[in-house]
C-alpha cells in the first residue's frame, strides 16, 4: 500500500495515530462468568418441565441475554460507535421480518378449507346450488404441494 503520491497535499498528513480503547480485564472476566452461569442455568432449566412454550421462552431469553453480553463486551459494542450497534440490530430486525412473515403463511394454511368446500362447483353457473361434483378450480391445481401441506401438519 505504500504508494508515493506527489499530489498528496490538501489532505491533512495522516492524522493522529490510532489510540485503542482498551477494556479493563475485570470486565472480560465478569462477562465470562456471566456466560458460564447462564449456561448452567439454561441446561438446568431444560431438566425441569415448565410446559413447552415456557421452556422455549426461557431458553430464548437466556440465549438472548448471553448474546447481548457477548456483543456488548467481547465485541465492544458498548464502547464502540452507536452506528455499529444499529447495523447489527438491523440484521436482527430483518431476520425477525423474515421469520414472522413466513410464519404468517406456514401457521395459517388451510384456514379457509371449510369455506372452499362450499365454493360453486359449476364455474359457469356459480349461483346454482352446489352439486356433489368436486371443484376443478385452477388455483387448487396449480398448488398441490402447498395445499396438501396444511393437511399434513399435525
Amino acid at each position: 500500500m505504500a504508494h508515493a503520491d506527489p499530489h498528496d497535499h490538501g489532505h491533512h498528513s495522516h492524522g493522529p495515530d490510532h489510540v485503542p480503547h482498551v477494556t479493563p480485564l475485570p470486565i472480560y472476566l465478569k462477562t465470562f462468568a456471566t456466560l458460564v452461569v447462564l449456561t448452567v442455568i439454561t441446561v438446568g432449566a431444560s431438566y425441569i418441565n415448565l410446559g413447552t412454550s415456557v421452556n422455549l421462552a426461557l431458553a430464548l431469553i437466556i440465549a438472548t441475554t448471553k448474546a447481548c453480553v457477548v456483543a456488548a463486551f467481547f465485541m465492544h459494542l458498548a464502547s464502540d460507535h452507536k452506528f455499529h450497534t444499529a447495523v447489527f440490530a438491523s440484521s436482527i430486525v430483518f431476520l425477525g421480518i423474515f421469520v414472522a412473515f413466513t410464519m404468517f403463511d406456514t401457521s395459517a394454511r388451510g384456514q379457509f378449507d371449510a369455506q372452499k368446500k362450499n365454493r360453486p362447483a359449476q364455474m359457469t353457473d356459480p349461483f346454482a346450488k352446489a352439486t356433489a361434483a368436486p371443484s376443478a378450480a385452477p388455483a387448487a391445481a396449480a398448488a398441490p404441494a402447498g395445499a396438501t401441506k396444511a393437511g399434513a401438519k399435525p
Partner: peptide
C-alpha cells in the same frame, strides 16, 4: 421492498392470511 415478497406466491398455496 423487504415486506412484499409473498406477492409472487399468491397461487403457490400460500395461506390466505399471508
Amino acid at each position: 421492498g423487504f415486506l412484499v415478497w409473498g406477492h409472487h406466491m399468491f397461487t403457490s398455496g400460500q395461506s390466505e392470511l399471508a
